[in-house]
């Protein structure tokens, strides 16, 4: 997106809420087992945060905030979810059988970590990765085409002027 097309107000607002939304998505992910939420919704919300960045600043902006191939998220999400399933075998359970770890940590106190959370993180990563991929691919194409259209118009304009 060309700098002159950006809207300052939109830019500022988006920057302000971006991290909040990301945090919200993490909250949704972590609390999903007991309250509305979960990896899927969390991933969508995280994705929505990037959609906002995209609307405000275009694909470059998204890429700056997430400077890696979105496929990494997709791949690692699938692997993590699948490995969680396989991990149950190590604990002697069936595929994808949930397991709990109760830890007593000094500061945080009792922590109940469930293998289902790891699975949910996998879901989260895939969903977020999907949205990022979409932004990168479709957004890219749309922008290229828009630019091309603009150039055509500009070309036609200069051709007609003299």
């Amino acid at each position: 997106m060309r700098p002159e097309d950006r809207s300052l107000i939109l830019d500022t607002c988006v920057r302000a809420v971006f991290h909040t939304i990301l945090l919200l998505s993490l909250y949704l992910l972590l609390s999903g087992h007991n309250q509305p939420g979960g990896g899927f919704v969390g991933g969508l919300v995280a994705g929505a945060a990037f959609v906002l960045r995209y609307v405000a600043g275009g694909a470059d902006e998204v890429h700056r905030m997430a400077p890696f191939r979105p496929q990494l998220l997709l791949g690692s999400g699938v692997v993590l979810a699948a490995l969680t399933g396989v991990g149950s075998w190590l604990a002697g359970g069936e595929l994808l059988e949930h397991g709990k770890i109760d830890l007593h940590l000094p500061v945080l106190g009792d922590v109940h970590a469930s293998s289902t959370l790891a699975f949910d993180i996998g879901v989260f990563l895939v969903v977020a990765g999907l949205v990022l991929t979409l932004l990168e691919s479709l957004g890219d194409v749309a922008e290229t085409e828009e630019q091309a259209a603009a150039e055509r118009e500009a070309g036609a304009g200069t051709g007609a002027a003299p």
């Binding site: 990494l72 791949g75 690692s76 999400g77 699938v78 692997v79 699948a82 399933g85 396989v86």
Partner: peptide, 24 residues
């Protein structure tokens, strides 16, 4: 615990995830 029956599903899935992430 039965490992053999799920493996034909899980192994390709893990492989697929790795391949998505891998560039080479």
């Amino acid at each position: 615990m039965n490992v053999l029956v799920p493996l034909p599903i899980v192994l390709p899935l893990i492989g697929a995830g790795l391949c998505i992430a891998l560039r080479s």
